[in-house]
Design a binder for these strands. Sequence first.
RNA 1: GGGCGUUUAGCUCAGCUGGGAGAGCGCUACCCUUACAAGGUAGAUGUCGGCGGUUCGAUCCCGUCAACGCCCACCA
Length: 887
Amino acid sequence: MDIQNELPKTYSPEGIEDKWYQTWMLNQSFKPKKGKQNQTFTLIMPPPNVTGKLHMGHALDATTQDVLTRYKRMKGFETLWIPGTDHAGISTQAVVEKLIYKTEKKTKHDLGREEFLKRIWAWKEQYGAEIVNQQKKMGVSCDWDYATFTMDEVPNKAVRKFFVKLYNEGLIYQSDYIVNWDPILQSAISDAEVDHKEVKGNFYSVKYKVKEDPNIELIIATTRPETMFADTAVAVNPNDERFKDLIGKTAIVPICNREVPIIGDEHVAIDKGTGCLKVTPGHDFNDFEIGKRNGLPIINILNADGTFNTNAPEIEGLKPKDARAEVERIMNELGILVEKKDHVHPVGHGERSGEIVEPIVSKQWFVNTTSMADRAVKAVEDGEMTFYPKGWENTYFSWLRNPKDWCISRQLWWGHQIPVFYCRSCKHQWAAEENPTECIECKDTDVYQDADVLDTWFSSGLWPMSTLGWPDEEAMKEKGFDRFYPNTVLITGFDIIFFWVARMMMMGMKVTDKAPFKDVYIHALVRDKQGRKMSKSLGNGIDPLEMVKEYGADAVRFTLAASSGYNRDINLDPERIEGYRNFMNKVWNAFRFIAPYLDKAKDELPIKSEWHLHDKWILAELNAVAKTINESLDVYRYDDASSAIYQFVYDKLCSWYIELSKNILNGNDEKAKIIRATMLKYCFRKVMILLHPITPFITEEIWSILENGKSLVTDQEYVEFDKNLENEEVLTMMNKFCDITTGIRNIRSSVNLKPKDELDVKLFTDDKELAKFMYESRHFLKDLANVKSGTIRGKSSERPKKSASLATTHTEIFIPLEGLIDIQDQVSRIKKDMDKTKADYSKVEAKLANTNFVSNAPPEVLAEVKEKAATFQEKLESLDKILNSFM
RNA sequence: GGGCGUUUAGCUCAGCUGGGAGAGCGCUACCCUUACAAGGUAGAUGUCGGCGGUUCGAUCCCGUCAACGCCCACCA
């Protein structure tokens, strides 16, 4: 049984992938090691939620980061990729809450805070690792010893340290503020977590009476009449001639008959609505501002669950929608509803819950981000941190140039509890890194901690530091903080530029005075093939694990890499994955071809004088690919790197070099056989190395056979560009050879000759080198185009009559087939080519005739155009000769 | 309303600092040729969104219009 038949005919990744992942782990391949670059390369993995299931976005994260990590590691950087998971406050709490209610019919309040948190931890220990295993299926080469959870001891310390620092600097403050309240989560959420969606509603015009003058009726337009119960003023624009006399008088809010002042405020637009505005400081962002300016009282009419409270007795207990209907009914009864019309307007929805959020005034914690944001902007302006693609810096700037204070408190239990403490006896409030046992002012022991927890992004923002041990000095030493901070690059999606990138910048620079990373590569968002966002409700999600199962992780990775450049969307079609699976199979079968010759192959390349022109050519092409891949990956052009290696394997290695090798490997020249086998093995080694960052599994599998298990491809040095291998003349010669071969095949196809039909081919060229090479290559032409016999002559020789023919720019090809071919057909083929060539020729000729062009164009362009003109002319002459041969 | 981006072959997209329009998939024809039918060989397909400008020369630069997409802010 020979080796070729031992290897399966199609590559099947099953079993192979897990085997190699385990090998790499055992081999400690993912641990940072000092290399020839004498430089570190660090990146952190955006920590997925512990509740998460791997989706295409994660798969893209994993691929773009792993390709880069493996590439840099092979190039000799001391490479560290840090994994981790995020506690994801709201979603985790919600998952466990639901689970407990389902199984035990208990709420978190039934269990109490301490017990409930215990349950979440237990859940996290049991299920939180799921996503980690899924990442491993993708082949991620991170150092798992660094794996960090956002609620581990060190990140906890980081959160506290940072909080206390800002608190003591006065940058964290507590304030009554109007916040977005999510009635499902029963928590405040930050502005950034609110989506504004267009909603169909109504525009109500309502009569308000004026106390001082019962004859006046103010018409007030509103979309939310149910909030009347919280009105504490009516406002008009002080410059509005219609109403300015009313300022200072008193309006009566209908239904609840509250007397409220009529005030003047510039915010009121004269031309919008009716020009009169009901002011509801407790439940509207703008009104809250008006209220502050005018010292208005705040009335809260909502409960935490979004229903109305006792301040709105007529609608108490109702949800806003029902309340609105009820208020409408009452208004109709009272005859104060003047008009109701349809109205589409944007309404805030909670990003996570999908529910309409209610503006509510409550006490929350905030971070004043003004100065931190300035620093973060400057770092990018000064080039301390660079975005790839550059355009994303605009998004970053647009957030940070108008920073809003960040609401960091959440009314949840799962998360980092705010390290602020209160004394019951003296009412003192302070922040502390360690839990105190007594008041630092009055020493009373009756102290308690703030009940709220921090926004999850507060801990994520410290991630580049806390994963490297900050602020624990021992941990920092152990994890190499000094070497690995700042990170080299951050890779993430544009949807969290503000949530995460900006916050890491602000927080990292606040602590260390250094940007936490040098580059930020923003990858695209994966959508379905129609460009729609993948979502549960649409059911258009593509499960990466299913794709891995069906096509192999390498194919999924190659697809994602090939789709990742500076684009902002990836419209993923599973057919593409199939296509790249086929590519994996192609690589596998190319290897199956060379496998039987491996024992002949030497480990070292033969001396240069023994290289065949084919060898010089393939090495030059290989070298060019190495150049492209290196340059592309250095600037995060995964697409260019992928297509370079894809094309090399298909179009150069398989279609030509391997095909050209058959004649030699099956021939009688032992020495030539050895050289060719050596060359093939060499190329394959290099291709495996070049491909390895993108498709680690199949390359490791093939490498193990290539090298008899002596080494791992993952430990090899990456292929670098080598100036000595460049060879312009050889490339030109091979291109001409390919032109001629393709030309012969083209003719064969045009006259419907079967592959089995042997040809007699007559070539005419004035290129003496080419003629020589074609003569030497006559055996190869037999293999590639089934050419049995032929001649090569100069262009002054006489052409055979009535042959199937074709002209390249350098060579005329004649296949004498008199009597067997349709002359008319051949003539029209040639004429068509002639028309096209004439058109091309006249274009360049026109340029050369243009004196402005000749005098203005740079010399190299001029030379190029002249050369083109010459080749077109040569081809035209050839075509002319061919036409004549039919006369 | 403010900002960003997109418009290139049937589809998805690439085209770096201006110099003869590209890839993959799909499609057509022929071929089970001893690595591969998850394959081979050959082939067809574009007013590079419209209009104007700069230039010897524009897919690329500028202006303008149109369509689409995204982000931010917000219409009581």
